[in-house]
């Protein structure tokens, strides 16, 4: 069987850890040249070593997704591999703070990174798909918290809800392009990554508590989400656009 992304080029943001790291690794194993981006250059170098060591094609670009100038450099790096086929808008920021304690600066931070960063990515990708004449796929990493409410995460929920809705409009605009571009969102539940452990601590007892609070009784792992992102980025989902794929062990089902 041929690999799912053979000969293609993709951008994966926030690839220096967690879901982004696993997605970049998986895409490379599926034959894709990966432009992996993030703010941590040392981690980016480690990813380049990891993928390169498996014979995959990868370039790391230091990237603040709020910066249009940075996005232009990311697009150039993709062009160096070939016409862009897929973008995974994965980078984001997560923090827990009750409404009353959430400052305007906190709210702005969540929106600038999660929403504006995603918006700029879609823009850059649509432009690259049009230039390359590719029927590309954009996968926006939203969250279960972009589908349901969660206490003490007002800014995060607002920003992820915005990604969910932005994805649907982008799907309609992408479908009007020639060739057509697909845009979908992925909604991870509790995935044991630095984004979560950075807030709550890397405590196995806590991971177990999250697992027991999940219908499947297991904690989420970033590679589970990477598989869902691959499904949406590849031709396996050729008739899927504007859809939400939840990867949460059943947390959101009730």
């Amino acid at each position: 069987m041929t690999r799912k992304l053979e000969g293609r080029t993709a951008i994966v943001t926030g690839a220096t850890k967690g879901i982004g790291w696993e997605t970049a690794l998986l895409f490379a194993r599926e034959g894709c040249a990966v432009v992996a981006t993030g703010r941590d250059a040392a981690a980016g170098e480690a990813l380049v070593q990891a993928i390169g060591g498996e014979g995959g094609r990868v370039a790391f670009v230091a990237h603040d997704i709020r910066s249009e100038a940075d996005w232009a450099r990311v697009a150039e790096a993709a062009d160096a591999f070939g016409p862009l086929d897929a973008l995974v808008n994965n980078a984001g920021v997560f923090f827990v703070k009750p409404l009353a304690e959430t400052t305007e600066a906190d709210f702005d931070l969540a929106c600038e990174i999660n929403v504006e960063g995603t918006f700029l990515g879609v823009k850059i990708a649509f432009d690259a798909f049009a230039r390359g004449g590719r029927s590309g796929s954009v996968v926006n990493v939203s969250s279960l918290m972009g589908q349901v409410g969660f206490p003490d995460a007002i800014a995060y929920c607002a920003s992820k809800g915005a990604i969910t809705a932005l994805t649907k409009t982008a799907a309609l605009e992408g479908a009007a392009m020639a060739p057509k571009v697909r845009v979908n969102s992925v909604h991870p539940g509790v995935i044991w990554t630095p984004m979560i452990t950075g807030q709550f601590g890397d405590d196995p007892a806590l991971a177990e508590a999250f697992a027991q609070d999940t219908p499947l009784r297991t904690i989420g792992r970033p590679e589970y989400v990477a598989d869902a992102i691959l499904f949406l980025a590849s031709d396996d989902s050729s008739y899927v656009t504007g859809a939400e794929l939840t990867v949460d062990g059943g947390r959101g089902a009730d």
Binding site: A171, L172, A175, G189, P215, L216, T218, G220, R221, Y224, V225, A228, S237, Y239, V240, T241, G242, A243, E244, L245, T246, V247, D248, G249, G250, G252, A253, D254
Partner: peptide, 12 residues
């Protein structure tokens, strides 16, 4: 890790 969810395959 996918359960209790909906996969829509409808061309949008």
């Amino acid at each position: 890790f996918v359960t209790g969810t909906e996969l829509v395959v409808d061309g949008g």
